[in-house]
Design a protein around this nucleic acid. Structure first.
Lengths: 170, 170
DNA sequence: CAACATACGGAACGCACGCCCCGGTTGGCA
DNA sequence: TGCCAACCGGGGCGTGCGTTCCGTATGTTG
């Protein structure tokens, strides 16, 4: 690979990282190219599609988060800690809310991780048994998106966490 | 108003009602026109903008729902019943999930109604005091959208309702 | 330094959608 | 019945975006 090519690839990644974090996946690709100081064509020589660029940007953080989901003695706490981490990330950077939604292998891994944590927490009796992985993913997707619309992230998270645990009071 | 004009207006409303219910606000306006058997121009002679058409379609149901929110002795039950009604509507018709999001006077009334119910429920001690109207609206927006992505609506609603009531178990 | 592959920029394409315009048509009133 | 205003259809405009193409510039190699 030519030296300027590697340099440009890095510039694109830096710009994409910042803009995806600020505005989420919906940021126009031309804007990323402009911020990187290159043409749109250059972006496409390094990343075949916008989603590939998005995945390249989010890969490190999401993978780290998935790796951090190691089972402990308290399966319920494991799940809640993971959801809390997701909420924290999503509060700070808008791209985390999209990482759970934009189609990619990364997203599938994330869903699988959530499913595993959920299953263990349910076996341990820490979470209602009638919740499916789809339910949890949908719930998180909605919650993460809501965090960028003026709602209080901490309160939202608490509501979801407590809702996962108990059934409704009579 | 000419007779054919009134007839076409009605055809547009019928088509819009069905398509908005099926696909939500994002359905292309040309598709609505095609289903109604008229041209796009005809739609715009009766409704100045797509949002106006959406509002005309959802007006009746949303207004009825708002009107049904009369305070009883149990402020908590009032709020929960209202949220349940919203969830039911959103489960059956996709446009209800958008009515809470698409800018319109109707949406503002809906938000105001939610705020009122929330405040009363909080005074009665039936709902955590640290939740704002924005939080509730964001939560509902996320939940309603999630209902069209394969999640179990009833479970989602129960999670939210129980989350609104109690703080997290220690 | 020359020559060539590699990479660049940005104009252009294709598509989708909201919205508008205009030549033709139709309904209602005198 | 004839005329005029109201209305119709649908082609077209403007916009925004992802993606591609190509003439030009640049880094690398012998």
């Amino acid at each position: 690979m030519r030296a300027d090519a590697a340099r440009n690839r890095e510039k694109v990644l830096v710009a994409a990282r910042e803009l995806f974090a600020e505005q989420g996946f919906d940021v126009p690709l031309d804007e990323i190219a402009a911020k990187a100081g290159v043409g749109p064509g250059t972006v496409y020589r390094h990343f075949p599609t916008k989603q590939a660029l998005f995945q390249a940007v989010t890969e490190a953080r999401v993978s780290a988060m998935i790796a951090s989901a190691e089972p402990s003695a308290d399966a319920g706490a494991d799940l809640f800690a993971f959801l809390g981490k997701m909420a924290d990330e999503a509060t700070a950077k808008r791209d985390m809310s999209d990482a759970i939604a934009v189609p990619s292998e990364l997203r599938d891994s994330l869903h699988a991780t959530l499913g595993g944590l959920l299953a263990r927490a349910q076996e341990a009796g820490a979470v209602r048994a009638d919740i499916t992985t789809k339910d949890l993913v949908a719930l998180m997707k909605g919650m993460l998106q809501s965090m960028h619309e003026g709602a209080n992230p901490a309160v939202l998270l608490e509501i979801v966490l407590s809702g996962l645990q108990s059934s409704r009071k009579p």
